[in-house]
């Protein structure tokens, strides 16, 4: 097992991509958008600005992870880079794993910069807001959110690599990954609504329950409320479980990806 050379060159390539700087710039821009939106609302403008800024942060990281993993893996195959790599004494699973690790490191760096951008953004917004009751921003909580968002990016990268291998069209792979993400976010609310509804048949309830158990649950990584509302408390157990969950599920996805790639004709 030697995934590290591939990881290294993948990550070097990705950091020089325009999407890295581009999406970070977009994030700065979206901070201004959040500020503008918050000016419209009555009352706690900082709360609203944070809601939007953190949501934008959440989705930018998700988009980045998907674009980077799908794009980079797909291009390797279509541009024949994969021949250069696999002609060397590397297993195909090394390649898949290396690709994933490279994306994960790129996502880590992206989240790291985003964390600074978003934190300084909301600190400035809360510092300049005129409120009777100041809205306190706890940076540690933003940091914890960033950690979870990073885990989510890693999780999504694994799916990105898988889909780039699975599909023969890049657009299809991208769209599937994004839909998977959105569906994974919806799952919790859907289950909540369906299970509590009187009008849903038991069979459908069962189907939704099964989907809820098996489908990747991306809403776990969404702890924006914990950052925005200081009254919300989260136990360390939550973070530990999310970490272990994403670790196990990511490994499973990577296993499937290596299985498919081993059988793939290049």
């Amino acid at each position: 097992m030697n995934p590290f050379p591939v990881a290294k060159i993948t990550f070097k390539e990705l950091l020089k991509e325009k999407s890295f700087i581009g999406l970070l710039t977009l994030e700065v821009f979206l901070l201004f958008v959040s500020k503008l939106i918050s000016n419209v609302v009555a009352g706690d403008t900082v709360k609203v600005a944070m809601d939007f800024a953190l949501s934008f942060f959440f989705f930018t990281v998700a988009l980045y992870s998907v674009f980077v993993s799908v794009g980079s893996t797909f291009r390797d195959v279509s541009d024949r880079v994969v021949y250069l790599i696999l002609s060397k004494p590397l297993k195909r699973s090394d390649y898949v794993l290396g690709k994933f690790l490279g994306c994960a490191v790129a996502v880590a760096i992206f989240v790291f910069f985003s964390f600074f951008i978003v934190t300084s953004g909301i600190l400035v917004i809360s510092g300049t807001a005129n409120l009777y009751v100041p809205h306190v921003v706890v940076v540690e909580r933003v940091f914890l959110l960033s950690l979870l968002v990073f885990l989510m990016g890693v999780f999504l990268s694994a799916f990105g690599v898988l889909f780039a291998i699975l599909f023969t069209s890049q657009v299809l792979a991208l769209i599937s990954a994004i839909f998977l993400f959105l569906a994974g976010l919806e799952l919790s609310p859907v289950k909540e609504l369906v299970v509590s509804s009187k009008y849903v048949s038991p069979v459908n309830k069962l189907i939704v329950q099964i989907a809820y158990y098996l489908f990747p649950n991306f809403s776990l990584f969404d702890v924006k409320d914990y950052v925005v509302h200081l009254a919300v408390k989260v136990s360390p157990l939550f973070f530990a479980s999310v970490f272990i969950y994403s670790l196990i599920y990511t490994s499973a996805v990577l296993l499937v990806a290596t299985y498919l790639f081993d059988r793939r004709e290049l």
Binding site: V41, V48, D51, F59, P189, D225
Partner: peptide, 24 residues
């Protein structure tokens, strides 16, 4: 509630903010 919730995955709070803005 269910329609707003389902049409804004991962965006509960911003959806709430926008509804409140509309209300204001």
């Amino acid at each position: 509630y269910s329609q707003v919730l389902l049409s804004s995955p991962g965006l509960r709070s911003p959806a709430a903010d926008l509804l409140f803005m509309n209300l204001c």
